[in-house]
């Protein structure tokens, strides 16, 4: 509560809001549109609330951050410059994904490596199983009958009933 005030505070009549950028459209004359701002905001995360993209975060703080994006756009900054500015200001957590450098590169490296190892193991397992001749004993193989399809269904049912 102490941390975040909601946008709806404005209906309570906070005077402070007279200079708020909550309604950025007043900069509509040729300036960046709300959509221009949201394109960048969508790829940034609110620095104080957890895991909420900046373009949909309803708090007043987020309104201010969107206003900041607008200010920077007016100054002619590029998307990357704005993102870098946010990282400098608020730390790497504002990015939807950590930059792939240093220790954090691990987040991208590990999954494909694990996948490759897993695929290799799966391949080895399957090959190992294949070595044996087809089931000498144990639960049997499909038997042909007048309709192979229905026979197979019936047989699977029998197996389940064992």
């Amino acid at each position: 509560m102490r941390k975040l005030q909601t946008v709806m505070g404005m209906t309570l009549g906070f005077i402070l809001l007279s200079q708020v950028f909550a309604l950025p459209a007043f900069a509509q004359d040729g300036g960046p549109t709300d959509d221009d701002v949201n394109v960048i905001a969508r790829e940034l995360y609110c620095p104080v609330c957890e895991n909420i993209p900046l373009d949909v975060c309803p708090t007043q703080a987020c309104e201010q951050w969107r206003a900041t994006i607008r200010e920077k756009l007016v100054l002619g900054w590029s998307d990357d410059q704005i993102k870098d500015y946010f990282v400098d200001q608020y730390g790497p957590r504002v990015l939807a994904e950590p930059p792939a450098e240093g220790f954090n590169a691990l987040v991208y490296i590990l999954p494909p490596v694990l996948f490759a190892i897993g695929a290799f193991i799966l391949f080895m397992v399957m090959r190992a199983w294949k070595v044996e001749p087809p089931t000498p004993k144990g639960k049997g193989v499909t038997v042909e009958s007048e309709d192979p399809y229905i026979a197979q269904l019936e047989q699977e049912l029998r197996r389940r009933d064992e």
């Binding site: 620095p47 201010q64 951050w65």
Partner: peptide, 28 residues
């Protein structure tokens, strides 16, 4: 703490704060 500069400066001016203030860069 995680703020926007425009509003932060307005806040300092509004309350007449004169001691040194600065953003918490990277929340360090």
């Amino acid at each position: 703490y995680v703020d926007t500069e425009t509003e932060a400066r307005a806040y300092l001016a509004k309350f007449g704060i004169t001691y040194p203030n600065g953003p918490d860069l990277g929340t360090r």
